[in-house]
Design a protein around this nucleic acid. Structure first.
Length: 924
RNA sequence: GCCGAAGUGGCGGAACAGGCAGACGCGCACGACUCAAAAUCGUGUUCCCUCGGGAGUGUGGGUUCGAUUCCCACCUUCGGCACCA
């Protein structure tokens, strides 16, 4: 058959899209005779225009879903919109358009764009999170969580703009001075009653990825985000008698705690602050609280803090230690208070040094290194000579020797030092042992009292030392000592009362047991993960279904009264304040329990709440007896393949896992995890290798590309131009190659005019071999999301087919088979052109319901192989040999080659490596 | 600072299990067709070279008959976290 027809994607693509829709080709219905496959791509936010990033995320995922369908799975590949959220409200204020109008017209537009991709979305299952039928169930989930005590209310600080009268999201706070994005007013923190979900209750389980086929990268990100650390909870007492709880990962350093630090927000701050420190503390707290966590936590910043005037008692040794307030301690982690052990914690060390707080070593160095800076005038000559002779002197200048004493010589050194030191001086033993040798006595730096004693003895001999507040402060002045003053390694406990000499590997365990026996502490696991704050002081979101009754408090809206509808007659103040608060009637209602006047919660839910369960709504978007139809759930869940951007690794993907596990414990969902397999695509940057953005003007518009090349070419190029999981900067030129390929497929497969007579058997055997080899690799690559090599293999095969055609392959069974398999292989990637050619060749509609071809292993087998011959690992020759050749035969042939003989240069081979069908390496 | 990923021709990338480095494509050069151009087709395209070869996968070492692939150290880029007690 000869078909003379131009390839015109603008014509064939809409034609097939309409036909497929009409025939319900992508309707997914429960079919128990087939294995199911739930392929899910992250739902888009209806920002208004489909971005090339959406295409990059969705079309390869679509190709994979199509491939699975051809492999015999009953595939569900749904789509919807994450339609609540801030941009709609910003548009409302800016353009005076209702968020609903804005959102739904965007959806309309994006639906059209999505359909132009030719994806196998089942539009009957579309779900839109801002539809009342959807958010009714978002609210229902909230109530279930509340009923099971997984939702609770607590006072929590938010960024607040006093001019706009509203909460700001983190991305709305700009600049170093933290001003409001809209009006420039500096932002303040405000404590508001907020709703939280108890994600932390699932922290331990969320760390378990054993049921998941998820990228290592995501697992690492989540693990770090959850941030598990083991340690102990220890109860200190303030002098007033209040319990002051702290969490520490190093209970073995308790004896070295020389001060405590409270976060500025800590509830005990007020109580422990003495009257004379009150105003300083208040001032400090005011400026600390205004800063964001990011600023406060930036490690580069110099430490700040203020003494409260109050003291606590260290429960292990009854030492009285000062309580400070400093912003390097965070209220959101642990209990918002720490014991500071400056000798073994870098931050505490820095703080203690700055504020002159004592630093007492309580953990031995593992290398036991001792350093001493010996002033020549403080000791006798014999001692100095001995040090030189033994080679302990690391450096010397006119005034002093810097010596490093090995562990074995320490006792001897101290003995000799005691004899050598004169009445005007002293010798410091630093790093280990921590002894300060004076002519009258030696003192060990093992307590705050000892610290002061040593210091005052030094000052007596050397009045210039008067400004120093601690021994460590003085030692720090000597560059030579700095490397050994502080360490955070585990090691043998010292200066720790009865627990001294406990070896490092048992120290933590023994101290915890000891604390538990004494009733002053216990083992504790802490997490960085925080409970999920879901309240938003916003209009365009799902209202939190709670009514506040003066008598009954926070009462759930009864389930049969859901949804709590968003009122549409809202007024937009330029202030951006939530219209729900301003609405004249909406918030006033009655208590579901007593019927007396009550008020609605005016906050709405975080949109991550909507996206935590959309995969369930897709199952039955119109179902009204529950969030989803259990029949659909039982068949389709869990999601088999979830694809989307890595940027959701720690937010959405933790929330949705939490949500699933919480629902499982409430009997709503089943199984350990919602999404079995996860794969992330990378990011497409602009051609300038910068992030695409309107302001940079480097945005690639998919609509224009589709117009110019057709959706199939755009799809294929997105699959081809980079590794899918890596992403890459966009390259406009490259797409021409893919366009050429599609055209060449069209020309080659449709025109089977015989050329050059009949092909011989060799050509046909080669053709079949290449076809089946390609089928094998393409199958593997679709399976493993290696889309770029799917396309390159197809290109390669096409080049072979063109060759075969020139050698007369057309009109043979082998040629027809090649065409048939070729079209099936390209159907998932380029669904329209594959369908069109398939149809023009008179094959049965639709190619997309055809089974995936099976590799003929016999045909794919090669009968000869090219074997490289190396001499000493260097390639010298190649041999074309039958695959059946034996080792002996191959070696004989190889050694007979003239070029090989030349490179052997008359030497006898010492060793010959033979890897069947791979290589021969002759070693001389 | 910590954690993670990645470094291969002019460019995007390939090499699946340690065995022919550079598949496939872009770009470029030359040629064919054309009055000409576009499109299309063909040939070539890692670098150096005295045409025998030699070097080469971020850098330096190591293991091996053999390393883009494994090990150690370092450099660069990107991403995440960022005083987490």
């Amino acid at each position: 058959m000869v078909v003379k027809k131009e390839y015109n994607p603008a014509k064939i693509e809409p034609k097939w899209q309409a036909k497929w829709a009409e025939d319900g080709l992508y309707r997914s219905v429960i079919d128990h005779t087939k294995p199911k496959h739930y392929a899910l791509t992250m739902l888009p936010y209806p920002s208004g225009d489909l971005h090339i990033g959406h295409w990059y995320a969705m079309t390869p995922s679509d190709a994979r879903a199509r491939f699975m369908r051809m492999r015999g799975f009953n595939v569900l590949f749904p789509i919807g919109f994450d339609a609540f959220g801030l941009p709609a409200e910003n548009a409302a204020v800016k353009h005076n358009i209702h968020p609903k109008t804005w959102t739904y017209s965007n959806i309309e537009r994006m639906r059209k764009q999505l359909k132009s991709m030719g994806a196998m979305f089942d539009w009957e299952r579309e779900a839109i999170s801002s539809d009342p039928e959807y958010y009714r169930w978002t609210q229902w989930f909230f109530i279930q969580l509340h009923k099971h005590d997984l939702a609770y209310r607590k006072l929590s600080p938010v960024d607040w703009c006093p001019t706009c009268n509203t909460t700001l999201a983190r991305e709305q706070v700009w600049g170093e001075d933290r001003h409001c994005e809209r009006c420039g007013t500096p932002v303040i923190k405000k404590n508001l009653e907020q709703w939280f979900f108890r994600t932390t209750q699932y922290a331990e389980e969320l760390l378990d990825f054993s049921n998941l086929d998820w990228p290592e990268r995501v697992q690492t990100l989540q693990t770090n985000w959850i941030g598990r650390s083991e340690g102990a909870l220890v109860i200190f007492k303030t002098e007033q008698g209040d319990d002051l709880e702290i969490f520490t990962t190093r209970p073995d350093t308790l004896w070295g705690a020389t001060f405590m630090v409270l976060a500025p927000e800590h509830p005990l701050v007020e109580k422990v602050t003495t009257p004379e420190n009150k105003s300083t503390i208040e001032e400090y707290i005011y400026q600390a609280i205004r800063q964001s966590d990011i600023q406060r936590e930036s490690t580069g910043k110099e430490k700040t803090g203020v003494f409260t005037g109050g003291y606590a008692i260290n429960p292990v040794n009854q030492q009285r230690i000062p309580i400070w307030v400093a912003d390097y301690v965070l209220m959101t982690y642990g209990s918002g208070a720490i014991m500071a052990v400056p000798a073994h914690d870098e931050r505490d060390f820095e703080f203690a040094l700055k504020f002159g707080l004592p630093i007492i070593p309580v953990i031995e160095r593992n290398d036991h290194q001792v350093r001493s800076l010996i002033r020549l005038t403080d000791v006798d000559q014999t001692f100095l000579r001995w040090l030189l002779e033994e080679g302990y002197v690391q450096f010397n200048d006119k005034a002093s020797y810097g010596v490093v004493i090995p562990h074995y010589a320490l006792d001897q050194f101290i003995d000799r030092a005691k004899k050598a030191v004169n009445a005007n001086g002293w010798i410091e033993v630093v790093g280990s042992q921590w002894e300060f040798i004076f002519s009258t006595k030696s003192v060990t730096l093992s307590s705050v009292a000892a610290d002061q004693e040593i210091l005052s003895m030094m000052k007596n001999l050397e009045p210039e030392l008067t400004p120093y507040r601690t021994v460590m402060e003085y030692l720090w002045e000597q560059e030579f000592y700095r490397p050994v003053l502080y360490h955070s390694e585990r090691g043998e406990m010292i200066h720790s009362g009865q627990l001294s000499r406990t070896p490092g590997d048992m120290a933590i365990k023994q101290v915890v047991e000891w604390l538990e026996n004494k009733g002053i502490g216990k083992r504790k696991v802490n997490y960085k993960l925080r409970d999920w704050l879901i309240s938003r002081q916003r209009y365009w979101g799902a209202p939190i279904p709670i009514v506040y009754c003066p008598e009954h408090g926070a009462v759930d809206v009864p389930e049969d009264q859901l949804p709590v509808l968003l009122p549409e007659d809202v007024e937009w103040r330029p202030t951006g304040e939530s219209p729900l608060k301003l609405h004249p009637t909406w918030r006033f209602t009655t208590c579901p329990i007593c019927g007396k006047p009550a008020e609605r919660e005016t906050d709405t839910m975080d949109t991550f709440m909507c996206s935590s369960w959309y995969h369930l709504r897709y199952l039955s978007p119109k179902y009204d007896q529950g969030p989803f139809d259990p029949k659909e759930y039982d068949y389709w869940m869990p999601v088999d393949t979830y694809t989307g951007g890595i940027e959701h690794a720690t937010m959405h993907l933790i929330y949705t896992r939490f949500f699933h596990k919480a629902c499982r414990d409430m009997g709503i969902t089943k199984g350990p995890e919602p999404m079995t397999q996860l794969r992330n695509q990378g990011i497409i940057l602009g051609e300038d290798s910068e992030k695409m953005s309107k302001s940079r003007g480097n945005v690639i518009a998919p609509d224009k590309l589709v117009e110019k090349y057709g959706a199939d070419t755009v799809r294929a190029y997105l699959m081809f131009f980079a590794r899918w999981d890596m992403g890459a900067p966009w390259n406009s030129n490259g797409i021409e190659g893919t366009a050429r390929w599609v055209k060449k497929v069209w020309a080659t497969l449709l025109d089977d005019t015989p050329i050059n007579g009949k092909a011989d058997g060799n050509v046909l055997r080669e053709l079949r071999r290449k076809v089946h080899q390609t089928l094998r690799s393409v199958t593997h690559d679709y399976e493993n999301f290696e889309f770029n090599t799917v396309i390159s293999s197809l290109m390669e095969l096409l080049n072979n087919m063109v060759n075969a055609k020139e050698n007369g392959a057309c009109g043979t069974d082998e040629w027809d088979e090649a065409v048939d398999i070729y079209l099936r292989m390209m159907a998932p990637a380029t669904p329209h052109v594959a369908e069109e050619i398939w149809n023009l060749l008179g094959k049965p509609y639709s190619i997309h319901t055809q089974p995936w071809p099976i590799v003929d292993e016999e045909a794919a087998k090669a009968d000869t192989v090219t074997i490289p011959i190396q001499v000493n690992g260097k390639l010298r020759d190649r041999l074309e040999l039958p695959v059946t050749i034996t080792k002996e035969e191959a070696i004989i042939i190889a050694l007979e080659r003239e070029i090989i003989q030349k490179h052997l240069m008359g030497n006898t081979p010492k060793n010959i490596i033979y890897i069947p069908q791979r290589l021969i390496n002759i070693v001389v």
